[in-house]
Deep mutational scan, measured.
Amino acid sequence: SQHQEELPPPPLPPGWEEKVDNLGRTYYVNHNNRTTQWHRPSLMDVSSE
């Protein structure tokens, strides 16, 4: 059986914070524009500005 090492997730872009809601779900807060989202932001998402 193949065992895959879990890679650590990439660092969050500046201004982002990973949080967990009261149901144990992980979400991400963008403090730059005060938004939240479910999927993890990547540095590539942000660098397109």
Rank of each mutant, 00 (worst) to 15 (best):
S1F: 15
S1R: 00
S1D: 00
S1T: 15
S1N: 02
Q2A: 01
Q2I: 11
Q2K: 03
Q2W: 00
Q2N: 15
Q2P: 02
Q2S: 00
H3I: 15
H3D: 15
H3E: 00
H3M: 04
H3V: 11
H3L: 07
H3G: 03
H3Q: 02
Q4S: 06
Q4F: 14
Q4R: 05
Q4K: 15
Q4N: 13
Q4V: 06
E5K: 02
E5Q: 15
E5T: 15
E5L: 03
E5V: 15
E5W: 00
E6L: 05
E6M: 02
E6F: 04
E6R: 06
E6V: 05
L7K: 14
L7S: 12
L7P: 02
L7M: 03
L7A: 07
L7C: 15
P8R: 08
P8K: 13
P8H: 10
P9F: 05
P9C: 08
P9S: 07
P9E: 04
P9D: 07
P9N: 12
P9K: 10
P9Q: 13
P10D: 08
P10C: 14
P10H: 11
P11L: 09
P11A: 11
P11C: 08
P11N: 04
L12G: 02
L12F: 00
P13F: 02
P13L: 08
P13I: 03
P13A: 12
P13S: 08
P13K: 03
P14Q: 10
P14Y: 11
P14N: 10
P14K: 15
P14D: 06
P14H: 09
P14C: 06
P14F: 12
G15W: 04
G15S: 08
G15F: 08
G15T: 06
G15R: 06
W16C: 06
W16V: 05
W16M: 02
E17Y: 04
E17H: 01
E17D: 04
E18T: 09
E18M: 10
E18F: 03
K19Q: 05
K19M: 02
K19C: 05
K19E: 05
K19A: 07
K19V: 03
K19F: 02
K19L: 07
V20T: 09
V20P: 04
V20R: 13
V20W: 04
D21M: 01
D21K: 00
D21C: 08
D21W: 00
D21E: 02
N22Y: 14
N22W: 03
N22A: 11
N22S: 14
N22T: 14
N22E: 09
N22H: 10
N22K: 14
N22L: 07
N22G: 04
N22Q: 10
L23S: 14
L23H: 14
L23E: 14
L23P: 01
L23T: 13
G24A: 06
G24P: 01
G24Y: 03
R25N: 15
R25L: 08
R25I: 02
R25V: 11
R25Q: 15
R25P: 00
R25F: 05
R25H: 11
R25K: 12
T26Y: 01
T26V: 10
T26D: 04
T26P: 13
T26W: 03
Y27L: 05
Y27N: 01
Y27V: 04
Y27F: 05
Y27R: 05
Y27D: 01
Y27P: 00
Y27S: 04
Y27C: 03
Y27I: 04
Y27E: 02
Y28C: 01
Y28D: 02
Y28G: 01
Y28M: 00
Y28F: 10
Y28W: 06
Y28N: 01
V29H: 06
V29Y: 13
V29R: 07
V29D: 03
V29E: 10
V29F: 13
V29G: 03
N30S: 15
N30V: 00
N30E: 03
N30D: 07
N30C: 11
N30I: 01
N30K: 01
H31N: 12
H31K: 14
H31W: 10
H31Y: 14
H31I: 13
H31D: 12
N32P: 07
N32G: 11
N32A: 12
N32W: 05
N32E: 10
N32V: 05
N32S: 12
N32F: 08
N32M: 10
N33Y: 12
N33W: 14
N33F: 14
N33L: 13
N33V: 08
R34S: 12
R34V: 07
R34L: 06
R34H: 00
R34D: 11
R34K: 15
R34C: 09
R34F: 12
T35Y: 15
T35G: 08
T35K: 11
T35A: 11
T35E: 09
T35S: 06
T35R: 07
T35P: 01
T36R: 05
T36C: 08
T36H: 06
T36W: 01
T36A: 05
T36V: 04
T36S: 07
T36K: 08
Q37F: 01
Q37R: 02
Q37D: 05
Q37Y: 01
Q37L: 03
Q37N: 04
Q37C: 11
W38C: 11
W38M: 13
W38H: 06
W38V: 09
W38P: 13
H39F: 11
H39Q: 12
H39E: 12
H39N: 12
H39P: 08
H39I: 06
R40E: 04
R40A: 07
R40G: 01
R40P: 08
R40F: 02
P41F: 00
P41A: 01
P41V: 00
P41W: 00
P41Q: 02
P41M: 00
S42L: 09
S42F: 05
S42A: 10
S42K: 13
S42M: 08
S42G: 10
S42Y: 03
S42T: 10
L43P: 15
L43W: 04
L43Q: 05
L43F: 10
L43S: 14
L43V: 09
L43I: 07
M44A: 10
M44P: 15
M44K: 12
M44D: 14
M44W: 04
D45F: 04
D45I: 02
D45K: 13
D45M: 07
D45Q: 05
V46M: 06
V46Q: 08
V46P: 14
V46R: 12
V46H: 05
V46C: 07
V46I: 12
V46W: 08
V46Y: 03
S47I: 05
S47H: 13
S47F: 08
S47R: 09
S47Y: 07
S47W: 02
S48T: 15
S48H: 04
S48N: 03
S48A: 09
S48P: 12
S48L: 13
S48V: 10
S48K: 05
E49N: 13
E49I: 02
E49V: 00
E49G: 05
E49A: 07
E49L: 08
E49Y: 03
E49T: 04
